[in-house]
Computed example of a mutant assay.
Amino acid sequence: MRYAIYFTPPAGDPLSKVAANWLGRNVFSGAAVKPPAIRSFEPEEVALLTAEPRRYGFHATLKAPFSLDEKFTERDLLSSLMHFASSVAPVTIDRLHVAALGDFFALVPEEPLAELDQLANDVVVALDRFRASATETERARRKPESLSISQLRNLEQWGYPYVFEDFRFHMTLTGRVEEKDKLRVARMLDAFFEPVLSEPVEINNLALFVEAEPGAPFEVHSLHPLSVSPLTGAGRPKKSA
């Protein structure tokens, strides 16, 4: 069993519904969703584009998948997650848009948002005690030879390269896309998601996702509302040195 702490919109949110249609799976129920009919894209091509993100479900990573340290139980993790979520304020993203991040596509904020980066930092620090140390196999999967110095340091200390200064909020839509196909895929994704990208997105929950066994699809275990008013919110935990 592995756990991850992500953001995903509620099941009834229009963005969740469109994303489930695109990825071909409902991350709340685990049910398959009929692939979309897209002009100039065969269903098999869409299935290939979405194969990797389909397994993880529609989400933004706040704390990457981890095994639970043997000192703790799932109930311990849930209790701490609920307490943490109740102590921090929601963050609003004015607008998401489709962007290429290296060789894959994702939804990202149009403008940097310091409050969102801080929330991600806080999640990493506040809940890291529940994470079992990564195995050599898990570490190798991150391809340490390709990482920067700061990313290697993050991998060693926090179990994931892309935290703190290396974090970028994103909601993955595709696996690897060949350079020759990027413009075509970008235009298609812009058109597909445009109807649900005109409204702000409120980061108003922390979602606990679970992977029941190695290689199994991740599913939502529970959503935990962020419930402190931004005007009266308590202080946040800080990144350790």
Score class of each variant (00 low, 15 high):
Pro200Phe: 08
Glu156Asp: 12
Pro53Glu: 01
Leu208Pro: 07
Val185Met: 01
Phe218Ala: 05
Ala64Lys: 10
Leu197Asp: 02
Ser133Ile: 15
Phe130Cys: 09
Ala126Cys: 11
Leu15Asn: 02
Pro53Phe: 02
Thr232Pro: 00
Leu48Glu: 07
Thr232Cys: 01
Tyr162Arg: 12
Leu116Ser: 04
Ser150Val: 15
Asn21Arg: 15
Phe72Ser: 08
Thr135Arg: 01
Leu113Tyr: 06
Asn26Gln: 04
Pro200Tyr: 10
Val185Glu: 00
Pro43Lys: 12
Phe72Gly: 07
Phe104Arg: 14
Pro10Cys: 08
Ile5Tyr: 00
Glu156Lys: 15
Ser133Pro: 11
Asn121Ser: 14
Val98Tyr: 00
Lys63Tyr: 05
Leu183Gln: 13
Val125Glu: 04
Pro43Glu: 03
Arg153Phe: 10
Gln157Ile: 13
His224Met: 11
Arg54Leu: 09
Lys238Asn: 08
Leu101Glu: 03
Val98Met: 01
Met188Gln: 10
Leu183His: 11
Ala114Phe: 05
Val177Phe: 03
Leu147Gly: 07
Ile5Met: 01
Pro161Leu: 10
Phe105Trp: 03
Arg75Cys: 03
Ser198Asn: 13
Pro195Val: 14
Ala100Thr: 11
Val88Gln: 04
Arg187Gln: 11
Ala132Leu: 08
Val27Glu: 01
Gly24Ile: 09
Ala60Ile: 08
Ser87Phe: 03
Ala19Trp: 03
Arg187Thr: 14
His83Met: 09
Val201Cys: 05
Val163Pro: 03
Arg55Met: 10
Pro161Thr: 14
Leu62Val: 12
Leu155Val: 14
Arg2Met: 06
Thr232Phe: 05
Ser133Cys: 08
Leu173His: 08
Leu189Ser: 03
Pro200Ile: 13
Asp13Tyr: 06
Thr92Ser: 06
Asp190Phe: 05
Asn121Leu: 04
